[in-house]
Design a protein around this nucleic acid. Structure first.
Lengths: 224, 224
DNA sequence: TAGATTGTTAATCGATTAACAATC
DNA sequence: TAGATTGTTAATCGATTAACAATC
């Protein structure tokens, strides 16, 4: 039932399905067809059915999908039935902001510690958790069976920290540093490159402005 | 020379090219071939040439690409030659963290103001900028010709704030709220859904763990 | 049973890669 | 000029959409 590799395009859509299904569930909706979900989410019904069928049949002909069941199944596929223990490395503004973001807990991402290399921060408490010195990193990860590390450190030190982490048994790195990390197989990296995202927005703003004033050249444009 | 729509797949790669070229430039590298860049970036040389040629020829046969020139051109394509004035709406942990992130300034994203609806925050200063009440939003955007708004508010209020923004002449919304915003044409939305990203990481960790202990079923698996 | 809607196969579309002629 | 490497066309691959038989 398992074993065929699922494309990252599909995986990337699962959290959005999960979110909409959660909302429907909260609204008390019991069943939904791919067509109804299509209308709400603005994706084709065909894509919805194809996506779900990558994991086996969650629906029933003539009926549709049971919202609560589908929600649960997608959560399971995403690994949200398991808990993850995470640490944050880098107690700057972003690191502290993420540490304070309690919503992750609800999904089983448990905040277990935060590290920094700045001695003036040692001992400062964030969500009742002391900021720890980097020297304690390896021991802490092993002793507490941490499986995820959040990297909110400057790009200059990210590669080195990733290398240290790769010997600790960590399973995934959520990387906010603006570099491509090079880690061994078996360690997953998920990048959040905020400046890349902002640049995309800048591009699209520009593009739409150019479309609105369809200048000179495009008016001269004649087909071949 | 313009006018053909560029796919978002290509746009999404531009910031990464930009980053690598910036680094090469800083290292004093003068020219680079698509093959050399391919080796560094782990994408095919063919894709690199195709991507660049969407915007016209930046290279020269037999020579390759001039690093400084290519860097500049990609920056221009991304709209980084223009400055953008942005405000942050929501002065919570994340909003304050982004406000303090001075690196965006270097790329022409100028932090012009921060808003919140919590009166106890009014007047508090972040980067020498007072937190403003939401009532002032519309006037402020118009008077200061703000073109981008960063939404770091709870999902419950995001839709309403987006609606208010859509009447101010804003051009783009960088949305950190965990909802899909519905805005008029001509306003660009770039989403940063952190919890979606974290879920993808959880999925990939799970997947790799299942691959490593290739249990029972996969051993029984025989072709067709 | 008839109607609805899935699961799944086939067709289409778009993106990536390969190949090579053009040209510096 | 010969060698290198682009720009660009053609081939391949993968993802999305359409269609419809299976079935609840």
């Amino acid at each position: 039932m398992d074993n065929k590799e699922i494309s990252q395009a599909v995986i990337g859509r699962l959290p959005r399905y999960f979110r909409f299904l959660g909302e429907l569930k909260d609204e008390g909706v019991e069943r939904i067809s791919s067509q109804e979900l299509s209308d709400i989410m603005n994706v084709t019904a065909s894509q919805i059915r194809q996506d779900f069928n990558n994991f086996g049949g969650f629906g029933q002909q003539g009926y549709g999908y049971n919202v609560a069941y589908l929600y649960e199944e997608i959560g399971r596929i995403l690994g949200l039935d398991k808990t993850h223990k995470l640490i944050i490395i880098g107690a700057g503004n972003l690191g502290q902001a993420l540490a304070n973001y309690t919503n992750f807990d609800r999904r089983g991402f448990l905040f277990k510690g935060i590290f920094d290399c700045d001695p003036s921060l040692y001992g400062k408490k964030i969500r009742s958790m002391e900021i720890r010195p980097m020297e304690e990193l390896e021991d802490f990860v092993k002793e507490n069976e941490i499986d995820m590390a959040v990297l909110t450190i400057p790009k200059a030190s990210a590669a080195q920290v990733a290398r240290r982490l790769s010997h600790t048994g960590i399973r995934g790195i959520w990387n906010f540093a603006h570099v491509d990390l090079d880690v061994p197989d078996g360690i997953q990296v998920e990048n959040v490159h905020l400046s890349d995202s902002l640049m995309k927005l800048a591009y699209n703003i520009n593009r739409s402005e150019n479309q609105m004033l369809p200048g000179f050249e495009s008016q001269l444009m004649d087909e071949k």
